[in-house]
Nucleic acid binder design. Structure first.
Lengths: 258, 258
DNA sequence: TGCTAAATCTCGAAC
DNA sequence: GTTCGAGGTTTAGCA
């Protein structure tokens, strides 16, 4: 929190004070946390109406708006970043209007009571890193192809074919072409169909035997059946082990460099 | 806000006070809003690390946890409803541990500074209604089949075929079978392929002509091309008009009942 | 519980 | 800008 722009906390502010604080916050791109009794209307891609009740509203410096109820992970109403904000009094209500262009969407929040209003500037340069994404799994397979099977040699990745991109493309120990489809979570039928589409595309362009391998931590029962019926293979690949392998590969590179 | 369990607001509380307030809130299932400087670790389906910075943390009465950065709609870290919560002191840090079983996941939030801590009970019985979902569009088409085309007669919906469920299944004015695939938003190539799969499944089971209609508010250019090349049709259907039609049908039912 | 399909999905990257 | 794919997706519905 910047010392020169400290946090402002108001308990049970009157409407006019809240209007001033909010518009000041919108102008200065301060973050807003608001707790109170409100109802919400939304019109845009769909329409919704939320009857009165006590909620938490967060308005961020980038213009994103979140209306949270007492339960659940998801906001009941929201507006993504970049919308224009306005607060005003309407009789005995505080109204916040958040408008997004393209697609045009309007969220209107009307407060009959405000229990808490706080505005502040958040300083946050901290880096966020997520391990074992699908990309990490791909990197790990390229760095250590034996994850797929002994003798597998990648020759390409993100290879473009008609329906999309092949995660990893290579040759097995017998010289057959291999299309590898990677999923970082349980593979479903959609993954099998995706792999099948890629294989069809490859078969249409080369006159050789083409194998398909679905690499994922798990596979659903139905997907397994479909995969088998199509003559394709499944290889269990653990995302955690992939991130460990990547870490080791990074270490190796540093050693090689020294 | 219940009068007997009023909102508690602490600005810059010390760690021990925050620990007490938090555990009290967890026990009493009070909602928590916390603003401060923290770092976050996550381990579960994946792993993540968030370096220190100022964030907003919301902990709801159902045990859901949200860590929000200064920007964006999505929380950077979270825990879905039903996780077990614990707050404790670790040297000069306030630590909040949120553990979920099945899948086992742990989010650990460590605060070096707390600017605002507020706990309260939210009373929220307000109803939420969203208009014009895909289901509403389906209902509207069943109630007024002419939305699709004159002479269209539905004979089934959510009909099971091998790859999934056909939204609406019927017969056109010439007696040809019709498979209708509904999308409440701009239809893409995936929608066309989904429709094509259903049609293939129907064609495999009956020895009759089968038409396919994609019903959506819009269709992407690529999807339109694919659709045309497959000899299928597109019918613009406005979700808003569907909800109006549904409303009128509801009115009619009430009138019929009276 | 597990799986499937939808979402005001969001978000980011590629075209 | 649009389009496409991934997500710790979440959520609801159903076998």
């Amino acid at each position: 929190m910047l010392a020169k722009k400290p946090m402002i906390v108001n308990e049970r502010p009157c409407i006019d004070e809240a209007v001033n604080r909010l518009n000041e916050a919108f102008n200065e791109r301060r973050t807003v946390v608001l707790v109170g009794n409100c109802w919400v209307n939304y019109q845009g891609r769909a329409s919704s109406k939320l009857e009165p009740g006590e909620r938490i509203v967060i308005i961020k410096e980038d213009g994103s708006v979140l209306v949270h109820r007492s339960r659940g992970y998801e906001p009941v109403n929201w507006q993504p970043p970049g919308c224009s904000l306005q607060a005003y009094r309407d009789n005995d209500m505080l109204v916040i209007r958040a408008v997004r262009r393209s697609p045009r969407e309007i969220v209107s929040i009307s407060f009959s009571q405000i229990y808490l209003l706080s505005t502040f500037k958040m300083v946050d340069e901290g880096e966020f890193s997520l391990y074992a994404s699908e990309e990490d799994m791909q990197k790990a397979i390229l760095a250590r192809p034996s994850i797929i099977e002994e003798g597998f040699r990648p020759i390409n990745y993100e290879k473009k074919v008609e329906p999309g991109f092949i995660d990893v493309y290579g040759i097995d120990r017998c010289g057959r072409l291999v299309v590898v489809e990677i999923k970082r979570r349980t593979a479903g039928k959609d993954s099998v169909l995706q792999l099948a589409k890629y294989i069809d595309a490859v078969r249409a362009s080369v006159n050789r035997e083409v194998r398909g391998i679905l690499a994922a931590p798990q596979i659903s029962k139905e997907a397994k059946q479909l995969l088998t019926s199509l003559g394709l293979d499944f290889k269990r690949v653990d995302p955690k082990k992939c991130s460990e392998i990547l870490r080791r590969e990074e270490d190796k590179k540093i050693l090689d460099f020294l």
